[in-house]
Nucleic acid binder design. Structure first.
Length: 657
DNA sequence: AGCACGCCGACT
DNA sequence: GTCGGCGTGCTC
């Protein structure tokens, strides 16, 4: 008997080995083996068992060495098969990833020590919370696929439900997967659970902030089929786990679940596939559930629960302010109502968050005379002004001195407009308006320095800072009881972002930030400043968030976007833009041909130049495929990849931005 | 992906 | 004469 294997080290061709006499023949396909290759030993995945050799063999066949130790998981093979066909990858990909972390060397990690583990123990659940737990306990005890969506307003105590259900699952000797959309949240959650559930429960963090030693300890547990709690972002969902009993996806709406690099696997989707194959319950929780999940509640009978009450504090009052209306004000970016509210809170010695939801692109420099914008020589993005003296590229880190005359029309400095607004600038404005306030900035630049970041968060918690100015980073996870005012400076920046889910993600973000207010106090306020009118502002009240679903779904149906239809992206990359354009057009033609030949019901869009179409001298184009049926999209794409294009091709089903 | 082989220039 | 740079080709 022989096996046909594929090497994990990137060597493409499959090889044939003899099975040692002592091996079982059953269940070899999908297992990892060690095989001799020239003078070394390599790991490989068994693709096929061959009873006899192919006739045309001219080389001598060597014998495989040993089967590799791998945690048993009855559903793993089917799961990696399904995942790999959905993401148009080879099943080998998942084994490579697992292998990669196993061979990881120990390295110093600067672990985020942000201390948020509030020690509230043995809390009695509210009736809202209890009814969810009561519904799920029977399913945990006799498992089946049971997708459950929990819409819990900010501060409603979803964590308490998770804790109960984790304990119930462990009682049945099963493993729990707890997933969060960001490493920092996973770190926080791990700490919280360890302090509140007690040391006798094996809890493992499993993400980039965890040491290789700890990861290996988890691996050993998995080998021995021990029931554990695994907390992570992307990695845990592709691990082989013998006795999986429950998956929890917290902040399920968050785009952080989609991996940043290709292949852009979405942990939320992978987890759903896994739960379905393993016949276990899966819980998705969020204060702002995704349209997609709400759609599944409606069309696919997912269980749905709502937590409409806050554990402590009360909901903030929400006030919408139009920036374009003619207020006479000291500064364009701080409207009169906001200025007054800040002054008011400062005298009451309460805390304020000022939020700027800019995303990637920010304030660039533009000539008022000729319209020229300074941009990066290597990437196609505008350069960002730093400290009013430097221009920096957000993608490749290129930097140069700020220009004082326009390089195109030679106009002077007074004609150079530093468009947009950044957190730095806001701090300066606020310092002028409120000279006695203690103001700090917490954006991505500040978070790169972990120590400084921790210090800022700590000082804000200790009320040594009155106003915290920040971007996305402050919207996630943190709990600042002293905050009674949240000011959102420019709510509509992202609404014009060229993606179909712009309204959804903007509203989710606004509600999440607004939710930072009034966690402890009865009276708080959120001021939302905007340039334009938009329907999302009708749904800023988070208790009524689900009404947004109806409105948005109608809109998506009109323009044929998910979740009504399926949607996938093909990204093409090449250093030569001419070749890239040729090949993208060729792919479009080919797709159309394939669709016609196979009678596929697909719509092809593009090729489009993405907003950032050139990064580090690599050009990019995007092609989109729509269809009522994902398998038709996959069929079309699989026809494309067998042709030998010189561009790099990346396939993303259901892309999020 | 590794690793050996081999062909050519630099150096004790 | 030998050491070592890396281009080429092979792996069951």
């Amino acid at each position: 008997m022989f096996i046909q294997v594929k090497l994990l080290n990137g060597f493409q061709e499959s090889l044939i080995y003899k099975i040692p006499a002592s091996w079982p023949i059953e269940q070899l396909v999908g297992s990892l083996v060690k095989v001799p290759l020239q003078k070394r030993t390599e790991s490989a995945l068994i693709q096929q068992v061959l009873p006899t050799l192919p006739a045309d063999i001219t080389f001598k066949i060597r014998e495989a060495i040993s089967l590799e130790q791998f945690p048993s998981d009855a559903h793993f093979s089917a799961y990696t098969q399904q995942l790999s066909s959905y993401y148009a990858l080879e099943p080998l990909y998942f084994f490579k990833r697992i292998r990669h972390f196993l061979s990881e060397k120990e390295q110093e990690l600067d672990i985020d020590q942000t201390n948020q583990a509030a020690s509230q123990q043995n809390i009695t659940l509210t009736s809202e919370q209890q009814s969810i737990v009561d519904d799920l306990i029977p399913v945990i005890n006799s498992p089946r696929y049971y997708p459950t969506l929990i819409h819990g307003v900010t501060g409603s105590g979803k964590t308490e439900i998770y804790k109960q259900l984790i304990q119930e699952t462990l009682k049945t000797q099963k493993t729990v997967l707890l997933l969060l959309p960001e490493v920092s949240l996973a770190v926080q959650f791990t700490k919280l659970l360890k302090s509140q559930l007690g040391l006798e429960i094996p809890i493992y963090g499993f993400h980039s902030a965890v040491s290789a030693k700890e990861k290996r300890a988890l691996w050993t547990s998995l080998m021995h089929q021990k029931p554990v709690v695994i907390i992570g972002v992307h990695l845990p969902v592709i691990m082989p786990i013998a006795q999986l009993g429950l998956i929890i996806i917290d902040e399920e709406h968050d785009i952080g679940y989609q991996e940043k690099k290709h292949p852009k696997i979405n942990t939320r989707e992978a987890a759903l596939m896994r739960a379905q194959l393993a016949h276990i319950p899966i819980i998705l929780g969020s204060a702002t559930p995704s349209i997609h999940s709400l759609y599944c509640v409606e069309k696919r009978n997912w269980k749905f629960f709502q937590l409409k009450n806050r554990f402590a504090g009360a909901f903030p009052k929400i006030k919408l302010v139009k920036l374009t209306e003619e207020y006479k004000r000291k500064n364009f970016w701080i409207s009169r109502p906001l200025e007054q509210a800040i002054a008011d809170r400062l005298t009451k010695k309460e805390q304020i968050i000022i939020f700027l939801n800019r995303r990637g692109f920010s304030f660039f420099i533009q000539c008022k005379s000729c319209g020229h914008i300074e941009s990066c020589p290597a990437c196609s993005v505008s350069l960002t002004v730093h400290h009013n003296q430097e221009l920096k590229c957000h993608y490749c880190n290129f930097s140069k001195k700020i220009i004082i005359t326009c390089p195109v029309c030679k106009a002077g400095e007074d004609q150079l407009l530093k468009k947009g607004i950044g957190t730095q600038q806001i701090v300066t404005i606020l310092e002028k308006l409120f000279p006695h306030a203690r103001i700090a900035r917490a954006d991505l630049d500040a978070t790169v320095n972990k120590k400084k970041w921790q210090e800022i968060i700590h000082n804000f918690e200790e009320k040594k800072i009155d106003i915290l100015v920040g971007t996305q980073t402050i919207t996630k996870g943190y709990h600042f009881p002293g905050v009674t005012l949240v000011g959102i400076l420019w709510a509509d920046i992202n609404l014009s972002f060229p993606v179909y889910n712009a309204a959804e993600s903007t509203l989710q973000q606004l509600i999440q930030v607004a939710g930072r207010a009034g966690r402890q106090t009865a009276e708080s306020e959120v001021i939302v400043q905007t340039m334009i009118n938009h329907y999302i502002y009708d749904y800023l009240n988070e208790v009524n968030y689900t009404q947004f679903y109806k409105h948005e779904l109608k809109h998506r149906a009109e323009v044929a976007y998910p979740p009504i239809i399926r949607f996938a992206e093909i990204e093409l990359k090449h250093s030569d833009p001419v070749l890239l354009d040729q090949e993208s057009n060729d792919i479009i033609q080919n797709l159309e041909l394939i669709a016609e030949k196979n009678q596929l019901n697909i719509t092809i869009l593009g090729p489009a130049q993405p907003p950032v179409h050139k990064i580090q001298h690599m050009h990019a184009r995007k092609i989109y495929i729509k269809s009522p049926d994902i398998s038709q999209i996959l069929k079309a794409y699989n026809h494309i990849i067998i042709k030998n294009y010189t561009s790099f091709l990346y396939f993303t089903p259901n892309p999020l931005q």
